[in-house]
């Protein structure tokens, strides 16, 4: 059966001599792995259309539940090749791609996550160093996929966490624990009340709003720390890409 959809290339892995297995985040099929015949040969008709980040209109052939359908056509809609040419920016984008690969289930459509990634890449094309774009993507992704940390109420007693200057985010609980409920020696990440307020307001914003926001660097760093720790914990250390480890592995 021939299927058509739009997709963003997340990853490609070498398979055999000149073949590839390409993983897409598609509009209609969610995470989709396809087999691509001989794209590594110079005369391949696929050209650069299966490079990571490419947004393309694709056709693939395979039975409804085929594990590895075959890609038959790929027409570039937007190549996002400028993003691929920025080394440090690309490492940040890899973190976003990794989230899709790690948390999404194959063939489960997620149109909102697809739109989120597409908008993120378009925004990053205009300013690849804007840290808020990356943070917004991570927060929204966790919200849509149901992995958001609980920062508005205490994870133990359910009480409101407002009214204090500092809070403790307990990574193992995935939530803030109020001062009355603190116990044990779990790893906690400090977060200020102002950073928490900023985090809560992000939920009401759209990518277009973010362009007008100028967040203080320390506040951004605090939220990034909470979100990155949370992502590391819920992925149980099984993520294949960790930017900090990558940068320290010279």
């Amino acid at each position: 059966m021939l299927n058509r959809t739009e997709g963003i290339v997340l990853k490609s892995s070498i398979f055999g001599e000149a073949d590839l297995i390409v993983t897409y985040l598609t509009k209609d099929f969610g995470l989709l792995r396809v087999f691509v015949k001989s794209p590594r040969k110079t005369k391949s008709r696929f050209g650069s259309s299966i490079e990571p980040l490419t947004y393309a209109k694709i056709s693939f052939l395979g039975k409804e539940q085929a594990n590895l359908p075959r890609l038959t056509q790929s027409d570039i809609i937007k190549p996002f090749h400028k993003l691929r040419e920025d080394y440090s920016g690309m490492l940040n984008i890899m973190e976003l791609l990794e989230m899709n690969l790690h948390f999404l289930i194959d063939r489960e459509p997620h149109p909102s996550i697809f739109r989120l990634l597409l908008t993120a890449l378009s925004k990053l094309e205009s300013d690849i160093n804007n840290g808020l774009y990356y943070l917004y993507y991570k927060i929204k992704f966790l919200e849509i996929s149901g992995y958001s940390p609980r920062l508005e109420i205490c994870g133990r007693c359910g009480g409101l966490t407002e009214g204090r200057r500092h809070h403790n985010f307990y990574v193992s609980h995935g939530s803030i624990i109020c001062h009355e409920c603190i116990g044990g020696d779990d790893r906690a990440v400090k977060v200020t009340e102002s950073a928490l307020k900023f985090y809560k307001s992000i939920f009401n914003w759209k990518y277009s709003t973010i362009d007008r926001i100028k967040a203080p660097a320390h506040m951004l760093a605090e939220i990034q720390n909470v979100i990155n720790s949370h992502i590391s914990f819920i992925s149980s250390g099984s993520k294949s890409f960790d930017k900090r480890l990558f940068l320290s592995s010279r």
């Binding site: 990853k11 294949s240 890409f241 930017k243 592995s249 010279r250």
Partner: peptide, 14 residues
């Protein structure tokens, strides 16, 4: 290849 865990120390860069 960051997504495959191929870091600089795994290549003959040093």
């Amino acid at each position: 290849s960051p997504l495959d865990g191929i870091t600089p120390d795994k290549l003959k860069i040093n």
